[in-house]
């Protein structure tokens, strides 16, 4: 780990000012569960850490009936919130399906959104990776990609976004509030295209302050289903956040793409009266699986059908 200075920000303004005055490579620090991890691997090398984990730590009721979740709210506290459990159960389930109890106590809402891919090539500085070292190549395309993207990938990057929480938020039309603007969650994360090093649309000196979940009646009938290689404490092969009350519908996939994958086509198909299976296929038509991950197409379809059947 390279030496760095550490400052604890007293407010969002202070955080931005401190960040702005750093000579190079300042990073905002939340719970540290991914950033410290990546610093120790040499993947991230900030010269300054601006600790924002103690700012914006409350979950407030919005005037319209939604929730405003401070960026510093810990994953475990968010999962335990009674309003989240009752009104957005898939969000609570997604949070609890992620990481471990002790990691959830450290990890923040803002940090969770900014998690970087767990693609093994990205995490090893001795191997090529366009996301980590632009232009060095993507060995995953021809190498090990069993658990990587099947939709929205590019020749430069086939990584997936690892967050569970973000999948539920994508389904629920959440909005990310930053120090500058409001960004719909579905537009917050990017596809890799020819700039795979950019995970999100966030500017380097832009800070997430809160995530707003709007009132959404159907969210009360929602579920999160995560398929993984062991029963707990593993990243998703495929996951589905679905809300369905026989009328309104929201669907997002995890584990399929560089971003949480809101399944607009599947939602539209169901609204038009298609069967669950046909709706899943309508969404997954655009899948371009790699040599070893075609199984994800079938797995995603079946997982979605299963989730919707359980909600019906």
């Amino acid at each position: 780990m390279e030496p760095f200075t550490y400052r604890r920000a007293s407010s969002t303004e202070d955080a931005l000012a401190t960040h702005g005055s750093a000579t190079r490579g300042a990073k905002f620090l939340g719970g540290g569960t991914n950033l410290v991890d990546l610093m120790r691997l040499g993947v991230e090398t900030p010269s300054e850490l601006v600790d924002v984990s103690r700012l914006e730590c409350s979950i407030d009721a919005g005037e319209d009936g939604g929730l405003r979740i401070g960026a510093g709210v810990r994953n475990s506290e968010l999962a335990a919130d009674r309003r989240v459990r009752s009104r957005y159960p898939a969000l609570a389930q997604a949070l609890l399906a992620g990481a471990s109890g002790q990691l959830r106590n450290l990890a923040t809402t803002g940090g969770n959104l900014l998690q970087r891919t767990r693609c093994p090539y990205f995490q090893d500085v001795t191997k090529p990776c366009n996301k980590r070292e632009p232009g060095s190549g993507c060995p995953a395309r021809e190498g090990e990609h069993r658990n990587l993207a099947i939709v929205g990938h590019s020749e430069h990057c086939v990584a997936t976004h690892p967050s569970d929480m973000a999948v539920a938020l994508a389904a629920f039309d959440a909005v990310v509030h930053t120090s500058r603007r409001a960004i719909p969650l579905v537009d917050f994360h990017r596809l890799p295209e020819d700039e795979p090093w950019r995970d999100t649309v966030l500017e380097p000196d832009e800070l997430i302050v809160a995530v707003e979940v709007p009132p959404l009646a159907v969210a009360a009938r929602s579920t999160y289903r995560k398929v993984r290689e062991r029963a707990s404490f593993a990243f998703a092969l495929v996951s589905v956040a679905a809300a369905y009350d026989g009328n309104d519908i929201r669907i997002a996939f995890g584990g399929l793409a560089h971003k949480p994958w809101r399944a607009f086509a599947a939602e539209e198909a169901i609204r038009s009266g298609a069967s669950f299976r046909d709706a899943a296929e309508a969404e997954l038509e655009q899948a371009k699986p790699l040599r070893d991950n075609a199984y994800k197409v079938e797995l995603a379809a079946r997982t979605l059908v299963r989730a919707l059947e359980e909600l019906s």
């Binding site: 620090l29 719970g31 991890d37 850490l49 984990s53 990481a99 002790q102 990691l103 450290l106």
Partner: peptide
């Protein structure tokens, strides 16, 4: 943060001490 052997109670909550920077 992948094994939990470092878990301590940090301000009363269980947490992975390996990913917690002391200065933070």
């Amino acid at each position: 943060g992948q094994c939990g052997a470092c878990t301590v109670l940090l301000d009363g909550r269980r947490a992975n001490a390996c990913l917690a920077l002391a200065v933070a």
